[in-house]
Amino acid sequence: MAPADETHTTGQPGLRERKKRQTRVALSQAAIRLCVLHGWDAVTVDQIAAEADVSVRTFRNYFTGKADAIAASHVERMLLIADDLLARPAGEPLWDSLLHAVLGRFAAPDTSGPDGFASRNERWSEGVRLMLAEPALAGEMVKANAAAQQGLAEAVARRTGTDAESDVYPKLVAAVVAAGSAVAVEHSLRADQPVPLGAVLAQVFEQLAAGLPVP
């Protein structure tokens, strides 16, 4: 029997790895929640650790600071999208599968909280906009996006029988999905009238699947 902290032959992480991932997610969500509600400069690492019910030392074991913690949610979400993509029916068209996977992680009811970036109300939306515009976050988001795209490219490669290292296709699909999702979030947050993120995502992926025809 494999130890609880090892990855099993099925590819599923062991108990220890799952707990570490849960702690990372809890800290990341706490950082987002506090920064959105109180503003970037008003939030400290001590407050984030307390919000997640862990020690500051535990926070430092996972992240270098607020920006790193917040960016981690993007990586986690894209890795979950990759998992969901691989779980979709084998005969389903790729872009249909991607739409279902993305909608499930960006626009599902249980992601309307701090890490879902869904527009709950005007104050929340404004807080998210301000947080995402924070210069200190920009560099970490670039690194997070690269890691997220790599994870998604590997899933696309498995799904399509291509190679995530030597073939352009899975990398291109992952980059397009990341860019399309970011555009949808930005559009939903900045619309003059509230626009459901799910509806914008559906529109984005419909156009992507059609090859971005000129309107």
Results as ranks from 00 to 15, higher is better:
residue 144 A to N: 05
residue 167 D to F: 01
residue 50 A to T: 09
residue 41 D to Y: 09
residue 49 A to L: 08
residue 212 L to Q: 11
residue 70 I to Y: 02
residue 63 F to D: 02
residue 156 V to F: 03
residue 199 A to F: 00
residue 157 A to K: 00
residue 87 A to Y: 09
residue 161 G to V: 03
residue 98 L to A: 03
residue 183 V to M: 15
residue 132 L to W: 02
residue 52 A to D: 00
residue 169 Y to W: 13
residue 137 L to C: 08
residue 132 L to Y: 02
residue 160 T to Q: 14
residue 21 R to H: 11
residue 22 Q to F: 08
residue 206 E to Y: 08
residue 179 A to D: 13
residue 46 D to P: 01
residue 173 V to L: 02
residue 111 T to G: 00
residue 182 A to Q: 14
residue 95 W to L: 11
residue 34 L to M: 10
residue 169 Y to A: 12
residue 49 A to I: 01
residue 56 V to K: 15
residue 101 A to Q: 01
residue 129 R to W: 02
residue 76 E to D: 15
residue 133 A to C: 12
residue 131 M to I: 10
residue 7 T to C: 01
residue 48 I to Q: 01
residue 211 G to R: 10
residue 84 D to F: 03
residue 1 M to S: 10
residue 162 T to Q: 14
residue 90 A to C: 05
residue 202 A to V: 08
residue 53 D to T: 10
residue 108 A to Y: 08
residue 137 L to P: 03
residue 48 I to C: 07
residue 176 V to G: 01
residue 182 A to G: 13
residue 204 V to Q: 12
residue 4 A to G: 03
residue 160 T to V: 04
residue 145 N to K: 13
residue 39 G to P: 04
residue 61 N to S: 14
residue 93 P to E: 13
residue 136 A to T: 15
residue 202 A to M: 07
residue 69 A to Y: 04
residue 14 G to P: 04
residue 26 A to Q: 09
residue 17 E to Q: 15
residue 175 A to N: 12
residue 80 L to T: 13
residue 169 Y to H: 12
residue 41 D to L: 07
residue 136 A to R: 15
residue 64 T to G: 15
residue 181 S to D: 09
residue 52 A to I: 05
residue 104 G to Y: 05
residue 54 V to W: 09
residue 51 E to K: 14
residue 72 A to T: 03
residue 13 P to A: 00
residue 126 E to W: 08
residue 5 D to Q: 09
residue 184 A to G: 06
residue 66 K to Y: 10
residue 210 A to D: 09
residue 195 V to E: 14
residue 9 T to V: 08
residue 72 A to Q: 14
residue 85 L to P: 03
residue 20 K to C: 03
residue 87 A to P: 02
residue 115 D to Y: 03
residue 139 G to A: 12
residue 143 K to Q: 15
residue 40 W to P: 02
residue 143 K to W: 09
residue 150 Q to M: 09
residue 33 R to N: 11
residue 4 A to E: 13
residue 122 E to F: 05
residue 68 D to K: 04
residue 129 R to T: 14
residue 20 K to N: 10
residue 180 G to C: 07
residue 122 E to Y: 06
